[in-house]
């Protein structure tokens, strides 16, 4: 049986690409490095858009990365069902690409924030969260400058009604996100954007927990069974 091949896109300024690849490897996938300027998804089975500050986030976070050549391949593939997980800056790129609704604004505190965050998984039906159970609580790091999720009233209502809020902050909302939203999914459940960093909670030696591994084992199991 071949391991699931999961691509990780490196944009100029991507920072957590190595971490995402490590977490994928720990989850049993074969990580594949993808370069933003390429035009080929290299036949991967799923994609992770990693955290970082693509193009320095000097414009809106993610606003420039969405125009990368590889995104021209990725967007239609995602609409056709390719599993995509955007973490932090990757979440921002997904919103800028309109694969996910809403936007991520600078933190309410106007400070970068890095902390071990309690979360609750609200939707365990996506391809990236199937290894969790709904209501399960996790501790994984959150670290961002522009992590405040916002959307118009109508979109929020729709997200909530459809159960498309994947994860929510508990105890303390670190960035002022509406409805304590930490992550959302598209209607089909194949595209997930997440502000916290599950790849930093994949090893007990270096993370506050190993609670983040589930995002990666979820996709590995899904790809193996399909």
């Amino acid at each position: 049986m071949n391991a699931a091949r999961v691509g990780v896109i490196t944009f100029p300024g991507s920072l957590d690409d190595i971490d995402a690849m490590r977490a994928l490897r720990l989850a049993g996938a074969e990580p594949v490095a993808l370069w933003h300027a390429d035009h080929d998804l290299r036949g991967i089975d799923a994609v992770v858009l990693p955290g970082g500050f693509s193009y320095g986030d000097y414009l809106r976070a993610g606003a420039i990365a969405r125009f990368a050549p590889l995104m021209e391949q990725l967007v239609p593939a995602a609409r056709a069902g390719l599993p995509v997980l955007g973490i932090c800056n990757g979440f921002q790129v997904l919103c800028e690409s309109h694969l996910l609704p809403g936007a991520l604004l600078p933190n309410a505190s106007r400070h970068f924030v890095c902390r071990d965050q309690r979360l609750r998984i609200d939707n365990a039906d996506t391809v990236w969260t199937a290894d969790y159970s709904a209501g399960q609580e996790l501790v994984i790091p959150v670290k961002n400058m522009d992590g405040r999720y916002v959307a118009d009233e109508e979109t929020l209502t729709e997200l909530e009604a459809a159960g498309r809020v994947v994860a929510r902050y508990l105890d303390l909302n670190p960035n002022g996100s509406l409805n304590d939203i930490a992550g959302i999914t598209n209607e089909a459940g194949n595209v997930v954007g997440l502000m916290p960093h599950p790849e930093h909670a994949a090893e007990s030696l270096t993370g506050p927990s190993t609670d983040g591994l589930g995002f990666f084992t979820s996709i590995v199991k899904r790809l193996v069974t399909t």
């Binding site: 971490d19 955290g51 924030v113 890095c114 790091p141 930093h200």
Partner: peptide, 12 residues
């Protein structure tokens, strides 16, 4: 808390 202590995944 304004510093990223996790990036690169080797912080013990």
């Amino acid at each position: 808390s304004q510093y990223d202590r996790y990036v690169r995944g080797n912080t013990v």
